[in-house]
Amino acid sequence: MSTVRLNPVTVKQVKTEESTIPRGVRKIKAPALWKQGYRGDQVVVAVLDTGCQRDHPDLRQQIIGGYNFTNDYNGNHLNYSDNHGHGTHVCGTIAAAGEGVTGVAPKAKLLVLKVVNGTGEGEVEDIVSGIDYAIGWTGPRGEKVRIISMSLGTPDDPPSLHNAIKRAVANNIIVVCAAGNEGDGRSNTQEYNYPGAYEEVVEVGSVSYSQRPSWFSNTNSQLDLVAPGEKVLSTYPGSQYASLSGTSMAAPHVSGALALLIEKHEKERNRRLTEPELYELLIRNTKSLGYPRSQQGHGMLHLNRR
Score class of each variant (00 low, 15 high):
185 G>A: 07
66 G>W: 03
239 S>Y: 08
305 R>M: 13
306 R>D: 13
32 A>Q: 04
156 D>A: 14
10 T>F: 03
278 L>Q: 09
159 P>G: 11
208 S>Y: 10
86 H>V: 00
165 I>D: 02
163 N>P: 00
40 G>S: 11
170 A>T: 12
64 I>E: 01
296 Q>T: 08
123 E>G: 14
182 E>S: 10
205 G>L: 09
131 I>K: 01
131 I>C: 00
138 T>P: 05
170 A>P: 07
108 A>R: 02
157 D>F: 13
165 I>M: 15
242 A>N: 07
97 A>H: 05
113 L>M: 12
56 H>C: 08
138 T>A: 13
72 D>A: 12
121 E>L: 06
286 T>A: 11
199 E>I: 00
190 Q>S: 11
253 H>T: 00
97 A>Q: 11
245 S>E: 03
193 N>V: 07
101 V>Q: 04
92 G>Q: 06
73 Y>V: 08
304 N>M: 00
292 P>C: 06
132 D>E: 15
33 L>Y: 12
282 L>T: 05
67 Y>Q: 14
188 N>M: 07
183 G>T: 06
303 L>I: 10
149 S>Y: 04
4 V>K: 02
4 V>R: 06
181 N>Q: 11
223 L>H: 03
190 Q>F: 12
160 S>W: 08
231 K>D: 15
284 R>I: 07
6 L>Q: 07
301 L>C: 12
131 I>N: 02
2 S>K: 04
56 H>N: 10
91 C>I: 00
305 R>E: 14
209 Y>E: 10
259 A>T: 11
197 A>C: 08
206 S>G: 13
89 H>C: 13
278 L>K: 10
255 S>P: 04
21 I>S: 01
220 N>T: 01
272 R>A: 12
123 E>W: 10
90 V>P: 02
236 Y>P: 12
166 K>C: 15
240 Q>L: 13
207 V>H: 05
292 P>T: 13
153 G>M: 06
248 S>I: 01
138 T>D: 04
145 V>Q: 06
43 V>D: 11
267 K>F: 01
173 I>P: 09
24 G>P: 09
71 N>A: 14
235 T>L: 14
198 Y>P: 03
14 V>F: 05
54 R>Q: 15
32 A>M: 07
203 E>M: 09
148 I>R: 04
195 P>G: 06
171 N>D: 07
61 Q>I: 08
221 S>D: 14
236 Y>R: 00
77 H>P: 00
238 G>R: 00
173 I>F: 04
173 I>E: 04
66 G>H: 12
186 R>G: 02
303 L>Q: 05
230 E>L: 09
259 A>S: 15
172 N>S: 12
154 T>C: 04
